[in-house]
Structure formats: structure tokens, C-alpha cells
Design a protein around this nucleic acid. Structure first.
Length: 284
DNA sequence: ACGCCCGCCTGTAAGC
DNA sequence: TGCTTACAGGCGGGCG
């Protein structure tokens, strides 16, 4: 579910709300084993966190990284929300817990950060800053960040020529570019006027420039709108609020509806087993 | 070596 | 109405 705009929204809120707080206790539900699957057991996870102070919250692709200052030594908490993970900040400890609550972090100043994850694809992991890349190799192998890293269209053009893959596959490949998932891949390709199945090596320089601009524009507009919440409203920020970007979707989830640009019908097809939405008139 | 598909889970909605 | 099936934002592993 959560892609770059949603994770970045959560990151900004966490950076404002939890930096400076100290972790008092870490509670794990009986089904949290899968959440902390990279750890041997709960003890290792809890001892890395309890007593530590949050000094910053960062994002790499769809991963959140909490910088922590423990008893003398620095730690990093890595969080991936998977398909259905939510991080919710609650003021009162007594607030009833969602039944899929996996981890509850209670701060010494009061308040809790809860990790709720029905589909259990999400993950939490604690290690030292220097070991992060070794222990979570996916992080070390992430591609460029489309809104943080300055990337010229010429550089993008060179990268596209190195890979001979369909455009959507490439946009969703975290090792190529970090943070784009199924929703934003479709929205970026619509904005660029390109089909999902165009081969990466086939783009003219004008098309590369359009793709480059669309990637930055769609993702930064989506961050400004605080991400997309779909019908199931699974995506929520740390205050439980939905995002607003779904109302601006041009193709995703709009099959059968009229294209906002040319009025022809938006279609849904399958690509790599994933639903793909496009306008066959506007995207070539 | 790399693209593609499956499986991992639970919940919801469509289909019969 | 109620059961069954398909599908859903994620990614890693294994297959061809």
C-alpha cells in the first residue's frame, strides 16, 4: 500500500511528533513474531529500543529509519509498512487497540506509537547504524530517490538505456528507483503519456524528459496532498487521517471512467500479475 | 543474468 | 442470503 508519498507523509509527521521522546517500553503482541522476523526473538528487539531516545526519522525509498540514541550507543530502527502497515500515534495509553496491533512503543513522556498490520507483510528491525546495510541488504541496494536525489534527465536516459525492460517493471524495481509502487507507476506513466509496456531503451529524448518531469511532479504533488487513501482507507497517517491524492488520480482505480484529458475510457489490464490502469489514447 | 510468477497473510467485495 | 473466489498498495525467492 504505502509508497513514497505515503511513507514521506508519515516520516514528516513522525519527525515533528516523536523526535526527542524516549522509549520506556516495547510490547509485542502474540502474533508479532513475523513483524520482527529478522530478530532471533523479542528480547533482542526490545532491548535495542527500550531506554533509547529518538533523534531523527528518515526515509529511504519505502523504508522508515528512526535514529536512536541508546545507553551510549546509537541504534537504528528500520520499519517497512508492507501492504497494510500503519504507524499510529496515540495520546492515551487506554485507547482501545486495533486487533492487528503488533508492536506498541510507549514513551516516558506518555503517549504511544503503535504498529498495526493486518496482512503482516510489514517489518520492524533494530540494529546499529553501521550494520544496517549488511543486515538489511535491500536497503543498501536501493536505487535513486526520485524526489530527494538530483537526477538530470540525461542521467536518467543513460540509466534507462542500461536496462532492457518494460517501463512499468523498471519504475517499480526498487533497485532502479526507490519508492514507486503500483499506484504511482501508473500515474507517472499517464502523466508522461507513455504505455506501461514500452521498452526502456525505446524512448526518444523528449519522452525521457517527460518521464523525468512526471516522476518528480506526480510524487511531489502526492506528498503535498499527503498521499493516497483508496476505498478501504487502509492508508492512514500517524493521526489516523486519510490522504487526499486519490481524488487527483488520472488512471489508478478509474477503469470504465472517462479519461480526464481525452474522454476515452480508462482500461485495466494485467502486467506482471498486477493491475495496470491506462488511457490507450493518451499513452503511446 | 535477468525477467517473471508465486507465495506470504487477512479482509473485502464480487460472483454464483 | 450464504458460500466461494478473486483480488488488494509490498517484496523475496526460485524458476525458466
Amino acid at each position: 500500500m504505502p509508497e513514497l508519498p505515503e511513507v514521506e507523509t508519515i516520516r514528516r509527521e513522525l519527525d515533528r511528533e516523536v523526535v526527542g521522546r524516549r522509549i520506556k517500553t516495547v510490547e509485542l503482541s502474540s502474533t508479532a513474531r513475523r513483524t520482527i522476523r529478522r530478530h532471533k526473538g523479542p528480547k533482542e528487539f526490545q532491548s535495542g529500543l527500550e531506554g533509547a531516545k529518538v533523534t531523527g526519522v528518515h526515509r529511504k525509498g519505502k523504508y522508515l529509519l528512526f535514529s536512536l540514541e541508546g545507553a551510549g550507543k546509537a541504534q537504528t530502527l528500520v520499519v517497512h509498512l508492507g501492504m497494510s502497515g500503519q504507524l499510529l500515534l496515540v495520546k492515551r495509553t487506554k485507547e482501545p487497540r486495533d486487533r492487528h496491533t503488533k508492536v506498541v512503543v510507549t514513551f516516558t513522556q506518555g503517549g504511544q506509537l503503535r504498529f498495526v498490520d493486518p496482512r503482516t507483510f510489514g517489518e520492524m528491525f533494530v540494529t546499529t547504524p553501521e550494520d544496517v546495510d549488511k543486515q538489511v541488504p535491500e536497503l543498501a541496494h536501493l536505487g535513486f530517490d526520485p524526489i530527494e536525489d538530483i537526477m538530470s534527465w540525461l542521467r536518467l536516459s543513460a540509466l534507462l538505456r542500461q536496462k532492457k525492460t518494460r517501463l512499468k517493471t523498471l519504475l517499480m524495481d526498487q533497485r532502479f528507483v526507490a519508492g514507486i509502487g503500483n499506484i504511482y507507476a501508473d500515474e507517472i506513466l499517464f502523466a508522461a503519456g507513455l504505455r506501461f509496456d514500452r521498452e526502456s531503451t525505446s524512448l526518444t529524448s523528449q519522452e525521457v524528459r517527460r518521464l523525468h518531469r512526471s516522476m518528480v511532479e506526480v510524487l511531489s504533488d502526492a506528498v503535498k496532498a499527503r498521499g493516497s487513501s483508496l476505498q478501504d482507507e487502509q492508508y492512514r497517517d500517524i493521526f489516523g487521517e486519510t490522504g487526499d491524492y486519490q481524488s487527483r488520480h488520472n488512471v489508478y482505480g478509474r477503469d470504465g471512467e472517462a479519461c480526464r484529458r481525452c474522454r476515452s475510457v480508462i482500461v485495466r489490464v494485467k502486467s506482471n500479475g498486477r493491475s495496470t490502469y491506462l488511457c490507450e489514447q493518451c499513452q503511446v
